[in-house]
Amino acid sequence: MKRYCLALDLKDDPGMIAEYEGYHRQIRPEIRKSIEDAGITVMDIYRTGNRLFMIMEVDDSFSFEEKEAMDAADPKVQEWENLMWKYQQPLPWAKPGEKWVLMDQIFGL
């Protein structure tokens, strides 16, 4: 099992942040299925201020490229991603078009 950690910012608006959290308390079943079908076994998102931190644990079948292709071909996932982008903004150092930025582990115990 592999673990990946990613970061993303939300727009710094308390009302919008509350709406975003509301969507994630009742995730759509088709979105949950797309996550699980990609080989993601654990996905946790934490927030401090407007910064989000995601932890993903994945099985051996997972690849970012395959997940991206699956998402691009799924209209429900595209609808979800477009809706979420209303609340999200890229990190200042993100590449053009990049949402969640993969983090580098700098310590482990």
Rank of each mutant, 00 (worst) to 15 (best):
A7I: 11
K86G: 12
A69P: 03
L109W: 10
D104K: 12
K99M: 08
G22R: 01
L109Y: 09
K2F: 14
F53S: 10
D13N: 13
R32L: 11
E21G: 03
D9F: 02
I35C: 02
Q89W: 13
I45A: 06
K33W: 05
E81K: 03
D71A: 15
E30I: 02
P14C: 05
S63L: 02
G39W: 00
G39Y: 01
H24K: 00
W85R: 07
E57S: 06
L109C: 15
T41G: 11
G97P: 11
P90Y: 07
I17S: 07
R25A: 08
I106G: 10
F64I: 04
D74C: 02
Q78Y: 04
M1Y: 03
V42D: 05
I55T: 11
L83R: 02
R47I: 14
S61L: 02
F64E: 12
I31W: 00
Y46T: 14
V101I: 14
D9H: 13
I106M: 06
F64S: 13
E68I: 06
K95P: 14
P29C: 00
A69T: 06
M54L: 13
M1I: 05
W85G: 14
K95H: 07
I45S: 08
Y87K: 09
S63P: 11
R47P: 09
E19R: 01
P90D: 09
K2M: 06
W93I: 13
A72I: 02
G108V: 15
D104I: 12
S63T: 13
C5M: 14
Y4Q: 06
A69W: 01
G22L: 02
R3C: 09
A18W: 00
K67H: 14
E66Y: 06
L83H: 11
I35Q: 00
I31K: 00
I31S: 01
G108N: 15
D71I: 10
W100A: 10
Q26K: 04
P14Q: 01
F107E: 09
M103D: 15
K11Y: 15
D44H: 15
I106V: 12
L6K: 08
L52A: 08
Y20F: 05
E19V: 10
K95L: 12
D59P: 04
E57K: 03
L83P: 13
M70Q: 10
